[in-house]
Amino acid sequence: MSARRPASSTAPGRVPALVLAALALAGAPAAARANPLETAIKATFLYKFAAFVDWPDRAFPSPNSPVTICVVGKDPLGPTLDRAVNGQRLGARPITVRRVARLDAQSGCQILYAASPKDSADALKAAHGAPILTVTDAMPDGVDSSGGIIQFVVRENHVRFYIDEAQAQGSGLSINAKLLSLAVSVKGRS
């Protein structure tokens, strides 16, 4: 299961909104050069991931408690994320956003997003083993095994992602096959 169907290699030109003209320099840190369109897409993706992931029961205090997206450290999404999440629900659960300086047990996060590599390293360490879907931006030189379960990447002017299914399994999460099928690549379960 290591080799998933690669996501569409050719975009048929129906995604003008996703043309990222500003991404001229591939080697520059994504967060530093993020343009508003990319930010908006990432914000949307963040809460949409929730629909394709199954958390263990222990991840939520109660059946109606919200799905909380925690943005750790530096926040490149800003109010875009708040707008995107506003009013969205996952079944009975509302989706909320919390911004924390650093992750700890009281954060109550189900989804974690750490934009800067420094923040992400700490956060990932803190979230290790906990039922939290960790999302980071991929390193410019490729997928980093020390990254989150899902790592954003920009390919052919489209925001795409890698999935580390092995890490997700370690965290007790189950990722829907449909999501896996959209990933650029999947690190399979051991």
Partner: peptide, 13 residues
């Protein structure tokens, strides 16, 4: 669902 959620129009198509 996934294609629609993550704007993968080619897959949807």
């Amino acid at each position: 669902t996934a294609a629609l959620a993550f704007d993968d129009q080619s897959v949807a198509q």
